[in-house]
Each structure stands twice: as structure tokens, then as C-alpha cells.
Amino acid sequence: MRLLHSSGTPLHVSYCTNVHPAEDLDGIIAQFDAYAVPIRDRLGADVLGLGLWLAAPVAAALAADPALRARLRGELTARGLEVVTVNGFPYRSFQDPVVKHAVYHPDWTTRERLTYTLDLARVLADLLPDDAARGSVSTLPLAWRDPWDAAMAGQAARRLDELAAGLADVESATGRVVRVAFEPEPGCVVETTEQAIAHLADADHDRLGVCVDLAHLACAWEKPADALGALRDAGLPVVKVQLSAALETAEPEALREYVEPRFLHQTRTPAGEAADDLDEALDRRLPGPWRVHYHVPLHVSPSAPLAATTPLLREALAELAGGPEPLCDHFDVETYTWGVLPAALRPQTPGQLADGIADELDFVRAELRHLGVEA
């Protein structure tokens, strides 16, 4: 969806397709018909934005073949769909039965990660609507924290220099600006806003910035105003925002039905105690309250004694879009965990999943309207 900020700046609101398993072009196009078109229809939107996820093999194929890129753009346009942002965090196999730590590989010390990200930038440059100001690619926060040493940090810094140069080449060749956004996440080298500022201090801030994932921000127990103010003061742009909500509770035993084998669910307390997964936190009996990296649907509240960090999402939206100028123009709903929710909450059919995602987008649209943004 496109919404209009009171300043006249278009705000692009999309949903992230990493919730779907397709990793080849035909499968990706099929998911447009199964999910994206019904979502657009349910919202009554002329155009629906997708935060497109492309696994590394299909990204490479598209980057190498202008005809394939033209086909993909044509398929999007024919269905009233558009892409201004791409999720480049998962490399491939994101909906496999077990993902866990594999999602952090390859990391930013490797050429594979650099190649994948530049492939995505080349593809996105050709998918961008003609009137879009720029595109964005979100990516992992350098690496999982262990192992990490000075040599790896130096290698990653060199990759980021190569990335900025490659993005400049994309702009020179296509006339389109694509920026890359590093996404702080619990357990990674870059977990907090402060760490993002430190690790990206010497990066090219015209092309590289931060993806603020609001569930991750909540799990770090950061306040949106403080985090966004620190980024502004450091001159580090908010390239993209991932609209997400984490689980929160003062009674951790109520979380047992959320333990599942596919994704990591990092758990944090306000005192800084941490576990890398929910089952570990339960076994260690960390003192509550907890916030858990488990993206839950934005538009519904879990049953007590559980809650979602939706109040923090509202605070963040007020900071991001409630002022005289927006701090970001790319907003992507990223609830990739629909398929691992407790059975009673899990969609059973494609239509039910489409309904749930549409409800999330409608929730976001209503929240932004409350801030004076026009639909």
C-alpha cells in the first residue's frame, strides 16, 4: 500500500514474503496468486507492496538475466503488486523444518553474502516502480556473535566497503538508488542501537544504514525515542522499518506452547539476562519479565498472562511517522512465524493466512491514519 505523510512524502507499506517457502521463480509467482492478490483484494488497495524475499539461487538467476527480471516485473504489475524493499537476511531455506542458527550464514565476512546482496540490489533496481524514490535491502547484523574477533571484524568492514562501491555501480548503471539496511537482532554482533552505531560508524551512510525491527528493539528493552534519537544524532539513516511484535510476559511458564523447532526465539530480561532460545530460557528459569523474539500477529493480543509488545510498536510509529517529516518511508510487516504458532492460532489454509496478513496490514494502516497519514 502507498500512504501519504502530511509532508507529502509517500510511505510504502508492504508485507514480507519470507513467510512463504517458494524459492524458484515459478513458485514465487504462484504465491502472488495464492496470497498477495487475495490480500490486496481484502484491503481494497489499488496496489499492494511486497517486501520480496528471494533465495540466493533465484536472486542470482534474476541478476544475470534481464529477461527474467522483466518477466518478474510484468507479473507483479499485472496483479497490482509492487516492490520497493527486499528482505536479504535469510540466504535460502528459511521455511525449512529446522532453521535456527543457519539463518546467520553466510555472514558478512564472506564473499557469498556480498554477492547475494548485490544480486538483490540489481534485481530491485529493475523492479522499482518508476516513481519510487529508492529501494532498500535489509540484511543480517554482520554475523552471529560467536565466533567473532578482530580479524573477522576487519574482513566484514572490507565487505561493507565493497558493498557500498557495488551499490554505487548499480546506481550508475540503472539510475536507481538502492540502500542496504543492517538489522540489529538479539544474539548477533550487532544486537542494539548502540552497537549498530559503533559498527557502522565508518560506513557509507548515503548507501548503508539500519533496518529497525520493532520486535528486536523490544527484546533489547530499548525505548523507540531513545534509539531513533541516537541514530539521528549519529547520522545513521533508518533505511527500513520491520513492523513486528514480540511476546512479553511476567509468567514465563505460559510460554511453553510456543517452543518449536524451526526458529530461534532469543529471550531477554530487563536486567540483561539472556538465553539464545526459548526452551533454554525455560530450562534455566530466568527471572521474569521476559521478552521473546517470537514475531506474533500485529492485530491480535495473545491470551493472558501473555502480551505482545504492540504498545512499543505504537510508540515507534509515532516517532517514525508522527512528526513533520517521516524518519523512514519503507515499512514492512514481517510476521514470518505464522506456520509455527501454537496449533489453535495457526492458519490452516492459504485463505486463512491471507486473511491474517491482510488484518495485520489493515491494523498498520489504521495506526498510521491515527497519526495523520492519509490512505
Score class of each variant (00 low, 15 high):
Ser6Asp: 13
Thr9Phe: 04
Thr9Cys: 12
Val13Ser: 08
Ala30Trp: 10
Gly51Val: 04
Ala56Lys: 09
Ala61Asn: 06
Pro66Leu: 07
Arg71Asn: 06
Glu75Leu: 06
Leu76Met: 09
Leu81Asp: 13
Val84Phe: 01
Val86Cys: 11
Tyr104Ser: 14
Arg113Asn: 11
Ala121Trp: 01
Leu124Phe: 03
Leu124Ser: 05
Asp126Ser: 13
Leu128Ala: 06
Gly135Leu: 03
Thr139Met: 10
Leu140Arg: 02
Pro141Tyr: 10
Leu142Met: 14
Asp149Met: 08
Met152Asn: 07
Ala156Cys: 12
Arg158Val: 08
Asp161Asn: 04
Ser172Lys: 13
Thr174Val: 04
Gly175Tyr: 02
Ala196His: 06
Ala198Cys: 02
Ala203Val: 03
His205Glu: 09
Val212Asn: 01
Ala215Phe: 02
Glu222Ser: 09
Lys223Ala: 14
Ala225Ile: 03
Asp226His: 12
Arg232Gly: 09
Arg232Met: 03
Leu236Glu: 08
Val238Leu: 08
Gln242Trp: 01
Ser244Lys: 02
Glu248Leu: 07
Pro252Ile: 08
Glu257Val: 11
Glu257Phe: 00
Val259His: 13
Leu264Glu: 11
Gln266Ser: 10
Gln266Tyr: 06
Thr269Trp: 05
Ala281Val: 02
Arg284Met: 07
Arg284Trp: 05
Leu286Trp: 03
Pro287His: 10
Arg291Tyr: 06
Arg291Met: 10
His295Lys: 04
Val296Trp: 10
Val300Tyr: 01
Leu306Trp: 02
Ala307Glu: 10
Pro311His: 09
Leu312Arg: 08
Leu320Asn: 03
Ala321Thr: 13
Val333Asp: 07
Leu341Ile: 09
Pro347Asn: 11
Thr349Glu: 08
Ala354Gly: 11
Ala358Arg: 01
Asp359Ile: 00
Phe363Cys: 12
Ala366His: 14
Leu368Tyr: 00
Leu371Lys: 04
Ala375Asn: 13
